[in-house]
Amino acid sequence: MRPIEIRDVSLIYETPAGNVPGVQSVSFQIAASEFVCIVGPSGCGKSTLLNIIAGFLTPTVGEIRIDGKAVTGQGQDRGVVFQDFAQLFPWRTALGNVAFGLEMQGMEKNRRETIAMEQLGLVKLEKFAQSYPHHLSGGMQQRVAIARALAYNPAVLLMDEPFAALDALTRDDMQRLLADVWRKTRKTVIYVTHNVAEAVYLADRVVVMTPHPGTVKTEVLIRLPRPRDPLSVEFLDYQRQLLQHLGQHAAAG
């Protein structure tokens, strides 16, 4: 397992109205197998930062290192789950979607389908292996997307508000499922959300970002045993603490 370093990363958007800093001088490290949530209001640059780590955007300054090696562009050392259900390939079954990354590695059909089936088992969707995405619910589609991102065994899983478009009950189920998947795989995860309760439920550590410009305001370690009880006093304390960090900014801004 490999640690990740974000070193002094800045990205400036060039717009007709002038240069707008998306993120400014962001630095932090993520240990191997750590689950890190990045929280912040919209416009704080959290998704921009994730897109830089994924290789979709190139930072104006700074670099990302995975296991000491600077990353450029996209690559199989990272798995990405987006918010939009439409991320799955509609012309492939659930199994075909999950096997895609392995297929790109040139793995032979039987082997990659065996592995893809195991991954679908991890998100409890073996029964739907032959279903096309449009026959699956939003929550199921996101589970397929998680299995797809894990199937080729990347060093880190990047998740951009994967459950934000789900209804509240499904979201709770999905959070439990993700916590379970993480416990089993011990994958390094960087998870972007604007939902404070979700961050406290999932993360080892929460990175709080604030906008204009997008910078890291503080970090909060969540020292709670798992599985976590969202109604416990300690849980609510962490939630309040995070909200204060975010709220202070709102008051100042």
Binding site: A54, Q74, Q76, G79, V80, Q87, F100, M104, Q105, Y152
Partner: peptide, 22 residues
């Protein structure tokens, strides 16, 4: 959908595979 291109790119699709498979 640009998301398909991004997802395929992350999963290591070459330009040729991107053409036929996505």
């Amino acid at each position: 959908n640009p998301l398909w291109l991004r997802a395929a790119g992350v999963m290591g699709a070459s330009e040729r595979r991107l053409f036929w498979k996505v």
